[in-house]
């Protein structure tokens, strides 16, 4: 399966989904002008991947900022992982936040409540 690699920009995160090397990572900040436009191909890719995923999918999220439109699309992404778990696949979400960043820690906790996927909150 193809991989996705998008370098971080001023207003969009770095995204690497590389099943061959077991890398699934979203990092940086996300406040694109049109969040749906940015995330649509990524969500499509993930949907496609979910049909025949790796044995374990470990999603690393290291965002330091996202706007509300991005937060909704991020949830849509994580809900695909939830569907994978329902289908008996193994997934884990690792949410990284700055030790001092309470808002990002809280955001992680809230995603953990919203999606039924093993979730760990980690600091960097």
């Amino acid at each position: 399966m193809n991989s996705i690699k998008i370098e971080a920009m001023e207003d969009t995160p770095r995204i690497v989904f590389d099943p061959e090397n077991d890398i699934f990572e979203v990092s940086g900040r996300s406040l694109p002008e049109d969040a749906a436009l940015f995330y649509e191909p990524i969500i499509d890719w993930l949907r496609n991947y979910a049909k025949n995923p790796n044995k374990i999918t470990e999603m690393h999220i290291k965002l330091n900022y996202f706007n509300t439109a991005s937060s909704k699309l991020l949830l849509d992404m994580l809900l695909i992982l939830e569907e994978m778990v329902e289908d008996g696949k193994e997934c884990i979400i690792k949410w990284y936040h700055d030790e001092e960043d309470e808002d990002m820690a809280e955001a992680g906790e809230e995603y953990a409540e919203l999606v039924d996927v093993p979730f760990s909150l980690l600091t960097y």
Binding site: A69, E113, L114
Partner: peptide, 21 residues
Amino acid sequence: KEQMKLGKISERGGAGLGFID
């Protein structure tokens, strides 16, 4: 949380979360 679950990205590109946030 409710709005995250129920809300959809609108035609204008918003998630209906701005004021709450």
